[in-house]
Design a protein around this nucleic acid. Structure first.
Lengths: 193, 193
DNA sequence: TTGATTTCTTACCCTACGTCAATTTTTACG
DNA sequence: CGTAAAAATTGACGTAGGGTAAGAAATCAA
């Protein structure tokens, strides 16, 4: 378990006692392509750390259209944060789908909060991550405001360089906020430079 | 100073000693309409708590167009979080403009981090706020993906019910990612229901 | 391998929103 | 106040991206 913990909390070093505390709260799971980790209406109480594989978080709007909020790859965390961090109840409103066979380590939010209280450096680690995420979200919102669909696609490919293999075209389109057809046109347009 | 601290950290109660620690790090400022709190290139080291008034954070893209990232009103914090929380240096890339005469309380990020270390409940308060913001950002990204300009405008008016007086129409347009002209047409369209 | 299913591309037309320019309305200020 | 400046509206027209439908290509399953 130790190597995984050090993988998860990169940059931190723990005493044997702390390692024990943490590993008691960390549970290995795996999930296969096309299976769903989370679906609307289900209770959400965990964070999931991705040790291998790839998942995507998406929503379905009243018109039945999918909207991809994020892809999560090796080394990232995922969950339905709207349910987990939001004020309301903890019922999910999102789908989290496995798009490449994955190995996950899950921690209950309540267990994680406990770890934060018991081990201050875990708390600081969490704050640090939340702050980075905060900046990253602002950048994404700006990117959506400032860039055209073509520019956003180019930015996406740069941000997730090796994801294109595992991800369907329509996943990317729904992440960028356009249709597959438009994405197809954009790709052709880029190709003939 | 005590009433302001209790206003800022709603829900927490502090000992006299803690109040002293906090008030030593909190500095009152005020700013007038049309002045800028932050401009690109300036160093950003503080959070600003808004006790009264209204500010907006915006960016100017290479084409010279403004994009409003957020409005900050009484009871909110503001800063250039991309600079303050991002990995890179602390030079601002944003403008923060006062759009209604404001009274602010500022804290240096380094002082705030110190408070978090010294007073655990402040740290928990911060984590709680970051987590809510995290969920809120996801909701905003989704809203941008799912809703039409008209629907986003309606959502905006509901989210900031009494802001319309102080905010220019083109501020709202640049927040919604549309032009003033489009916003004008949307408003007319809504009027004749 | 081959047929079936899923995904991607292309073509056609349509719509929401952008651009430009003129006009009216509102706000600021001497 | 009245005038200038700023903001909002309107109209004519352009364009990015959407909707639909059909075919091509890739992937899967047996």
């Amino acid at each position: 378990m130790k190597p995984i913990i050090q993988d998860i909390f990169r940059g931190l070093t723990f005493t044997d006692d702390e390692l024990l505390q943490i590993s008691g709260k960390l549970h290995k799971t795996s999930i296969l392509r096309k299976e769903h980790l989370i679906e609307p209406g289900k209770d959400v109480n965990h964070f999931y750390y991705i040790h291998a594989g790839c998942l995507r978080t998406y929503f379905i709007d009243p018109a039945g259209k999918e909207h991809t909020l994020q892809f999560a790859i090796k080394g990232w965390w995922t969950s339905d944060y709207i349910a987990l961090f939001g004020k309301g109840d903890t019922k999910s409103v999102a789908y989290i789908e496995c798009i490449q066979d994955a190995t996950l380590y899950k921690v209950a939010k309540s267990d994680f909060d406990e770890l934060c209280r018991e081990i201050p450096k875990v708390s600081r680690f969490h704050v640090q991550n939340l702050e980075s995420a905060f900046a990253a979200f602002q950048r994404r919102i700006l990117e959506n405001l400032m860039l055209s669909a073509k520019e956003r696609y180019i930015a996406f490919v740069q941000a997730y360089p090796n994801i294109e293999q595992s991800v369907k075209n329509y996943h990317i389109a729904s992440y960028l906020g356009i249709t597959t057809e438009s994405l197809s046109r954009i790709r052709r347009n880029i190709a003939l430079d």
